[in-house]
């Protein structure tokens, strides 16, 4: 009987329902433009969630995430173009190479604290951009790479916006679950402890530098995979897609989502992708409105909402839910 009860536990069912809804939704979308925006939302969510691991959870602020995105995109595209290997292999290679670059950069860089780390990652992003721009014999410089092959499964190329959405959504789901599982293990706990107090973490036997570098490499690897997805979706990439400005955008997703929260990262990635699109009509004022909005959201985060009437009502509601849950729990054991 206990089993039965647990099976209907809302906490277990809810993610499944969400996933089901997520997979059903694209069937209802017919507008190509909307599908396109959704693909970008998936890709940017991967970027935000992965950066969240190192910058949100572990507190090591990186402003170079777009560089790993670029390394992944170019790796994947070049392997596909030169060797004609299937996309899943290109995707894995992009992930592995980006993670290795992350290891290489992270090992010295993560010895630095706070602002110094930020400057170092900004420099790294610029370095990658310059390499992509100037290593013309391989990257074709500012012209970029064209005619990148579409992913093929069982001999059929992915073509429609909807198919691409399913593909990118699935990648996001895999990345999301992997990161979530990491966060719910001792590794996630250790990363949070490192963010709070490195000295205390070290005393408790956590090898702080090693954990930071590992998290950094994992984040870089997933960013590389997002890059691969982008390359084989756009079918064309150039160095401008991976500049420092875009790293800033990814970081603002993590910050807006509430440093450390995975659903927050996805929500913020969605907002910061959809809103600029919606403002496209107002072309000239777009960046102005966007900037103002970011400022308001950041200021809004600092307002002690709990003390406002709205916040108190919400807290009361939450309290009631919590009490209900606890009594249900108490009945079980």
């Amino acid at each position: 009987m206990q089993r039965n009860k647990r099976f209907f536990d809302l906490k277990r069912i809810l993610p499944l329902l969400l996933a089901a809804a997520m997979y059903a939704a694209p069937l209802a979308i017919t507008n190509q433009y909307v599908l396109r925006v959704c693909v970008y939302v998936s890709i940017y969510s991967i970027l935000a969630c992965s950066l969240n691991l190192i910058s949100g959870v572990c507190g090591q602020v990186s402003m170079g995430h777009a560089a790993f995105y670029g390394v992944g995109a170019y790796t994947s595209a070049l392997i596909a173009l030169s060797f004609g290997l299937p996309w899943p292999i290109c995707l894995l290679a992009a992930g592995v190479l980006s993670a290795l670059v992350g290891l290489l950069i992270g090992t010295p860089a993560l010895r630095l604290q706070g602002g110094y780390l930020v400057i170092c990652t900004v420099g790294f992003n610029e370095l990658v951009r310059l390499i992509l721009l100037n290593w013309v014999s391989v990257t074709r410089g500012p012209m970029g790479l064209t005619n990148i092959p579409r992913p093929r499964f069982f001999g059929v190329a992915i073509h429609s916006g909807r198919q691409y959405l399913y593909l990118s959504m699935t990648l996001l789901l895999i990345v999301y679950i992997t990161l979530r599982n990491i966060l719910h293990s001792r590794f996630g706990r250790n990363l949070r402890a490192i963010k709070e107090d490195e000295t205390a973490a070290e005393t408790m036997g956590i090898r702080v530098h090693r954990e930071k570098v590992t998290a950094f490499a994992i984040a870089a690897g997933f960013a590389g995979m997002a890059g691969s997805m982008l390359a084989h979706y756009m079918l064309y990439i150039n160095p401008n897609l991976f500049i420092g400005d875009f790293s800033t955008t990814i970081l603002s997703m993590v910050v807006l989502g509430g440093m450390g929260s995975m659903p927050g990262s996805v929500a913020a990635a969605t907002l910061l992708t959809v809103i600029p699109e919606a403002l496209r009509e107002l072309d000239r004022y777009r960046m102005l409105i966007y900037g103002l909005m970011l400022i308001c959201m950041m200021l809004g985060k600092n307002i002690p909402w709990d003390t406002t009437p709205l916040g108190r009502a919400a807290a009361r509601l939450r309290g009631r839910v919590k009490i209900a849950r606890e009594s249900e729990h108490g009945g079980k054991d």
Binding site: A193, E196, D197, T199, A200, E202, T203, M204, G205, R207
Partner: peptide, 22 residues
């Protein structure tokens, strides 16, 4: 420093060092 717990030495700090947000 991270080795000492394995060796069997644990400590507390004069200026409290807990993980406040956890």
């Amino acid at each position: 420093p991270s080795q000492y717990v394995k060796e069997g030495v644990a400590r507390t700090f004069q200026n409290l060092r807990v993980f406040p947000a956890m």
